[in-house]
Simulated assay, not measured.
Amino acid sequence: MTVPEKGRRLFEQAMRSFTGEGGKQDYATAAKLFEEAAKNGVVGSSKYNLGVMHKDGLGMPQDLSKAATLFYEAAMKGHPEAQYNLGILYYEGRGVDQDLEQSCRWFKEAADRGDLEAMHNLTLSYLEGTGVPADAVQAAAWARKAAEQGLAGAQSNLGTFYLEGIGVPKDIKQAVHWLQKAADQGHQDAIDNLGRAMTLMQAGGSA
């Protein structure tokens, strides 16, 4: 769907006020412009940014209930960051009643649209059976999707899964491969597990 030119201009002005790019940061002006942009066709991104402002109390009193409503409205427009943030609020019970199934629902929506943090959270949800039935294979699959796109936490998890045989066949070479990638990004758990994986590989791969 083509975004109306007026809505696009309003959203760009709102972002400049929100970030302070090219001038003074002005949250009050940003909020008004986001609201106008939403009325003029830029709904998802405008509602998402308004949600962030209400969640973090930027230029207005913090209001998690209002943030949840705005994230929901943006999420229904397919905005992945809004879907992820709504999942977090449901997980933590902030601004909404805690609902782990709804949390996972929105993480899944965001992950399907490429949000790496949502993929990471789905990994943990499937691993622990939080909001979804425990499923190590699904946990490993979501870890792989995020790991292949460079998320250090996912690379660490995938490497550990290969090291322990969780959701994937035990494979020390694959464990070292993914743990090394995460360790190169400074991920401490990966650094800790990499030494053990290297020792196992040098010993012939037996646990």
Score class of each variant (00 low, 15 high):
residue 34 F to A: 10
residue 50 L to Q: 01
residue 79 H to C: 12
residue 98 Q to P: 05
residue 66 K to V: 14
residue 72 Y to A: 01
residue 162 Y to P: 02
residue 125 S to F: 01
residue 28 A to R: 14
residue 60 M to V: 15
residue 39 K to Y: 04
residue 139 A to Y: 06
residue 152 A to C: 04
residue 51 G to F: 00
residue 183 A to R: 00
residue 123 T to Y: 13
residue 69 T to G: 07
residue 207 A to Y: 11
residue 1 M to W: 14
residue 205 G to Q: 06
residue 144 R to Y: 04
residue 80 P to M: 10
residue 45 S to V: 00
residue 9 R to L: 04
residue 185 Q to T: 08
residue 73 E to W: 11
residue 87 G to I: 01
residue 63 D to F: 11
residue 200 L to D: 07
residue 131 G to M: 12
residue 131 G to Q: 06
residue 93 G to L: 13
residue 132 V to F: 02
residue 177 H to G: 01
residue 127 L to Y: 13
residue 44 G to H: 06
residue 92 E to G: 02
residue 114 G to A: 09
residue 27 Y to K: 10
residue 185 Q to W: 07
residue 179 L to W: 01
residue 100 L to Y: 06
residue 132 V to P: 02
residue 146 A to H: 04
residue 63 D to C: 13
residue 184 D to F: 08
residue 100 L to W: 02
residue 128 E to K: 14
residue 169 P to H: 03
residue 109 E to H: 05
residue 106 W to K: 00
residue 152 A to I: 09
residue 154 A to N: 08
residue 58 L to H: 10
residue 188 Q to C: 01
residue 124 L to Y: 02
residue 40 N to L: 08
residue 98 Q to V: 05
residue 115 D to A: 02
residue 169 P to V: 04
residue 92 E to S: 07
residue 149 Q to C: 03
residue 95 G to H: 10
residue 136 A to K: 13
residue 161 F to H: 08
residue 95 G to P: 02
residue 158 L to T: 03
residue 113 R to W: 00
residue 144 R to A: 13
residue 191 I to R: 00
residue 89 L to C: 05
residue 100 L to T: 06
residue 53 M to S: 12
residue 20 G to K: 07
residue 169 P to Y: 01
residue 166 I to V: 15
residue 142 W to Y: 15
residue 16 R to G: 01
residue 145 K to N: 10
residue 167 G to M: 10
residue 187 H to V: 03
residue 67 A to M: 11
residue 45 S to A: 15
residue 179 L to M: 07
residue 31 A to M: 15
residue 14 A to K: 10
residue 88 I to C: 08
residue 31 A to F: 11
residue 129 G to S: 12
residue 95 G to A: 03
residue 79 H to S: 03
residue 181 K to G: 00
residue 39 K to D: 03
residue 153 G to H: 00
residue 53 M to L: 10
residue 155 Q to C: 09
residue 125 S to L: 07
residue 134 A to E: 15
residue 7 G to S: 09
residue 160 T to L: 11
residue 110 A to N: 08
residue 150 G to T: 10
residue 179 L to A: 01
residue 195 G to L: 09
residue 146 A to T: 05
residue 56 D to T: 05
residue 129 G to W: 13
residue 196 R to E: 03
residue 128 E to W: 05
residue 48 Y to Q: 09
residue 202 Q to M: 11
residue 88 I to L: 14
residue 27 Y to M: 15
residue 135 D to C: 09
residue 108 K to C: 03
residue 65 S to R: 15
residue 132 V to I: 05
residue 102 Q to C: 00
residue 141 A to E: 10
residue 20 G to F: 10
residue 32 K to M: 08
residue 131 G to D: 08
residue 206 S to G: 08
residue 44 G to T: 03
residue 71 F to M: 02
residue 114 G to K: 13
residue 145 K to D: 03
residue 19 T to Q: 04
residue 182 A to V: 05
residue 32 K to S: 14
